[in-house]
Design a protein around this nucleic acid. Structure first.
Lengths: 340, 340
DNA sequence: AAAAAAATGACAACCGGTTGACAATTTTGG
DNA sequence: CCAAAATTGTCAACCGGTTGTCATTTTTTT
């Protein structure tokens, strides 16, 4: 059926050993033979069976990536950059969409171990820590805490929470709401909300923390949810939430006749395109998506190659950046102030 | 190093054959032995080496997916649903992001062949048709034409173009612009633009077709581009473009003081979340993202299992749906008309 | 022409499973 | 207790490569 190294050897009129030597650049080979073999490989459309190679080498150059939702803009971007860095380093990506389902995550974890991937990047967390520590493979956690032996890479959510809080304070918010993701387990990103809350308290500002009541990522749900919030909370003048949610809040606010940022200031988090798509470009705390991907992959590859310079449980935090859009400072009213 | 079937056999006090029998449900095995072996597997944290199994079975249950951009919302969704259907059928996904780069696409195509995937889904097209026909593996094209032997699954772009045109006509547009994607090669989606143009012509409506001058997918670029269009074209009253672009057009139009849909009607294409995020929810032609994924995977699996009922070069078209948002019919002005 | 170096081949073991054939042992039923 | 059935084991071949050893052939050098 499939073309094997034997067929190539036969066609090129040489031994299997010679073909293998050529494939792996070992021993000495004459130009003539090399050419003959290459021609044979082309004519036969030969591709070395990586299963056999990998089995022998005990190495697959395969990395598994487990995410909670492929289609969420943030993860989609992470996947893109992670795949890019992996590709640059000769690795390929086995993508696993856990969909926040612990059955699936377990299956994937098992599958990845069976498939002898060289390492795993996990950006999901629906299992007990034990499930992760039992995995006998290099693992790096992306924006999750998976146990004392697994390094975490995340953005500096503490800084992010502080920046967001300060931006709302600087723009005179007095009654703010922050919306957190659905909280099954503690993740690095929770830090931004505790810090946000703390800073608000220290400044004597009324701050309420709400938790998304579901674990889905649908904009339609966010709109419904935003609607509820405005129905149940009066005189809010500041909001802090992930970009998608913030975008929904802005849209609903405006449709309810509120002036943004006049009546209501909004700060998003993530820095994804949703922040640009809304009517008023969101002021947002941008995560370093590219850097996160790069650092995660590099950390994993270092562990794989045994060159890791970090302690097992390191937490690498990458700096975030406040991008000022149109939802915290009103350019026009700013001018008016100047003109007075 | 790694735990093998031999270790399990040793620990369970039985032969390798027995363990293999248990793993594959062959022969007759006593409950006692079965239990012993399962215990041993658990205690050793054993995972059968899929490389060895796959090598023997000549089957990997791996499917490669080549997309032009993982982070584009449409593809991100397709990936999500494709992965889901694959997973339901016991297949895993090797994700390849071609990034519209023919070098990368070639590498991926070779890699997938080396890795003996069971089949490939291709949603990219930067190579000669020959490159695809040479691949000796089941292939299905998603929204691309890759040659006479490769089936294509796409949405019914003809219907889509017609629906979009009709919507603008029904709302009295007289001077419309449609914006097409960057055109390297003909794809099924081009059809919607030729049909759109035809319908407009037949109705005596001025219709200009513009092509995105770049092959990137960045919202920031779309904004710049939209700005240019408005600078160079006066009195446009209708626009047809992909959701992302349409969203940018809407945003720029509004910032230039235009009334949407009063002065300008917009119809998007895709039905992704961008259509909901804009200030006025886009009227859009929604592609059946889930159905596309399902059909693509099912078609591929049928070819893999040799049960395909289609001709090799079939083109399966799935119906689209017009979702009326707020960018073609103004609810308020609609009411006003009624009240007169 | 002889010696040294380069090129190639033959062969076997291995990676970690699967599988078929056949034998040996244990269990079960009458 | 014996025959039949069920269970388990041994062994070898195979999947498609890689690699080390040793031998043989060809080419190059002096």
């Amino acid at each position: 059926m499939a073309v094997t190294i034997k067929d190539v050897a036969a066609k090129a009129g040489c031994s299997v050993t010679t073909v293998s030597r050529i494939l792996n650049n070992r021993g000495s080979i004459s130009e003539k033979t090399r050419k003959k073999v290459h021609t044979a490989m082309e004519e036969l459309n030969y591709f070395p069976n990586q299963l056999a190679v990998n089995l022998f080498r005990q190495r697959t150059y395969l990395v598994g990536l487990i995410v909670p939702d492929v289609s969420h803009a943030f993860y989609a971007l992470e996947i893109k950059y992670i795949e890019r860095v992996l590709h640059e380093n000769g690795y390929r990506l086995l993508l696993c969409n856990a969909e926040s389902d612990n059955m699936r995550e377990t299956e994937y974890l098992n599958m990845l171990q069976s498939n002898k991937v060289d390492g795993i990047i996990i950006a999901s967390h629906t299992l007990d820590l034990e499930a992760y520590s039992k995995v006998n493979l290099p693992i790096v956690a992306l924006d999750r805490f998976l146990g004392p032996d697994i390094p975490t890479v995340s953005s500096d959510h503490e800084q992010g929470g502080r920046l967001a809080a300060q931006e709302l304070i600087d723009n005179n918010c007095k009654k703010v709401i922050q919306i957190t993701g659905f909280c099954g387990v503690p993740t690095p990103s929770h830090k931004r909300h505790t810090v946000f809350s703390d800073v608000m308290k220290k400044n004597g500002i009324c701050c309420e923390t709400l938790e998304l009541p579901f674990n889905a990522f649908s904009f339609r749900d966010y709109i419904t949810y935003a609607d509820n919030i405005f129905r149940n909370h009066n005189h809010i003048d500041g909001i802090f939430a992930a970009d998608n949610v913030a975008c929904a809040m802005e849209k609903v606010a405006i449709s309810r006749g509120l002036n943004v940022p006049g009546d209501l200031k909004i700060v998003g988090y993530d820095g994804i395109e949703a922040s640009l798509m809304s009517y008023k470009t969101l002021t947002t705390v941008a995560q370093p998506v590219k850097q996160l991907a790069l650092t995660t992959v590099v950390t994993l590859l270092e562990i794989i190659s045994g060159e890791s310079v970090f302690d097992k449980g390191t937490h690498i935090r990458l700096p975030v950046r406040l991008i000022r859009g149109e939802t915290t400072v009103d350019t026009k009213s700013g001018n008016e102030v100047l003109q007075q």
